[in-house]
Design a protein around this nucleic acid. Structure first.
Lengths: 258, 258
DNA sequence: GCGCTAAACG
DNA sequence: CGTTTAGCGC
């Protein structure tokens, strides 16, 4: 069974790439981020031929998450569920039998020291609590999405040039590490050490993808009840090479749930 | 030899349609209108595979004309060349051996009685003088483009509903007729009488193209030295049916220049 | 760069 | 309806 994350940077703009990719890669479950569309305008009908079920949580123009799945989820929940946090459509959770899948689009933070940067740190804190409170101990769970943090120097090209950049600050890394430390395994890193493995290449850098000037900010984590079942976790660079690509590409984890 | 006119309503937005059409229809010369792009941004490189030569006269956002040709023109001139008229990129002239080709994007006029409407009438007058002064007597010439006048009741759907509309006013028809009267033949009408033959269908009318609620405002005229050589003049509706079409479609005239 | 939102124009 | 110009977000 495979579970994937893909920041599509607009579901409407990315329909050709997304459909081509799910049809060729055939993931069982796909968490999407930055769908950028209200639920009423999500192109569900366009996805119908693929046979995927679609759970959505979106808003106009920004953010937006979704979960596609070959099998219908048994339950779906959206949002942080906290009136102290704006409902900016960054969290969607679905249960498939015993398995919980939590998709997130972590706030970018925009600029170090900004209000949005503070919000990112607060959001991590609040999301960590949601994870603790909603993922039952002992039941398999995967948390995945655009995490907007490159955890180590190996997760961004030329790390010394990015010391001052958002998504690469100690506070962000620590906020993420506090959650990950509660029993989550970074599945890609479990299998593949070393630099040069990225999931996001900025549009603004000329030939950034070809030159592999990227960031590993899209992650798939498994909890202790599931991590041992993971047999592979890879970055699929194919969608980043297609016509009109997203700036991100999918990460796919394979599990042996026999 | 075929000469065509096509108001593309943005050369950038219309590249797929334009390329598909020139590759299938294979016209020798194509006058384009509403390219809407400065010369430096005209997608010449994108057209290179087609083998067409490109002469351009454009501005940012509005208007803009061009001439594509299988054979390179021997000379090209642009504009009305009159300091009393703004250089709004509506005229391009090219010579191919003995043959002169004059492409125009006539001002729309916007609203009857407006300043722009007055400009349209003045422009016609000034353009008529340009034609007289630049097309040598006795040498073959074609004048074509988006003329923005439906000359008769047969050139618009439900003419009685359009008596008050721009592009259908007596003053406009007379301004056009004064030029045409100096020896130009409306080639489409030379071959095809009757209503229902249009070159422009407004985007704003639901299913206007399917229901054929259109206007014949794109014309091809030949002078006395050329008209007798014309063997056909047709509206090619195919490009109006393609994905992301212009609101106009090409008119193609065929000449026997043996 | 390449998405998005708007308003202006035709 | 489908262009354009802008500004915004990442």
């Amino acid at each position: 069974m495979t579970v994937a994350t893909f920041n599509v940077n607009s579901i409407r703009a990315r329909m050709p790439v997304l459909k081509a990719w799910v049809e060729s890669a055939g993931p069982d479950i796909v968490a999407l981020q930055e769908t950028k569309v209200e639920d009423g305008s999500f192109p569900i009908a366009d996805l119908e031929p693929t046979g995927y079920h679609v759970a959505i949580h979106g808003q106009k123009g920004y953010n937006g998450v979704a979960i596609l799945s070959r099998v219908a989820p048994d339950e779906v929940h959206t949002g942080l569920g906290d009136p102290d946090f704006p409902e900016d459509c960054r969290v969607i959770r679905a249960r498939f039998g015993e398995l919980w899948v939590v998709g997130t689009y972590v706030p970018n933070g925009t600029k170090v020291g900004s209000e949005k940067f503070a919000y990112k740190l607060a959001w991590f804190e609040r999301f960590g609590r949601l994870l603790r409170e909603t993922v039952p101990a002992g039941t398999p769970a995967v948390w995945l999405g655009d995490i907007n943090v490159a955890p180590t120097d190996e997760d961004v090209y030329e790390p010394d040039r990015h010391r001052g950049d958002v998504c690469f600050q100690p506070e962000e890394k620590e906020a993420l590490a506090r959650i990950v430390g509660e029993g989550w395994t970074d599945l890609f890193r479990h299998f593949t050490p070393g630099p040069g493995h990225y999931t996001f290449w900025e549009y603004t850098i000329p030939n950034g993808f070809k030159r592999n000037l990227g960031w590993r900010i899209d992650h798939v984590y498994a909890n202790e009840a599931l991590a041992g079942r993971c047999t592979a976790c890879v970055v699929d660079r194919a969608p980043r090479s297609m016509e009109r690509p997203s700036d991100h590409t999918p990460v796919v984890a394979t599990f042996d749930l026999a």
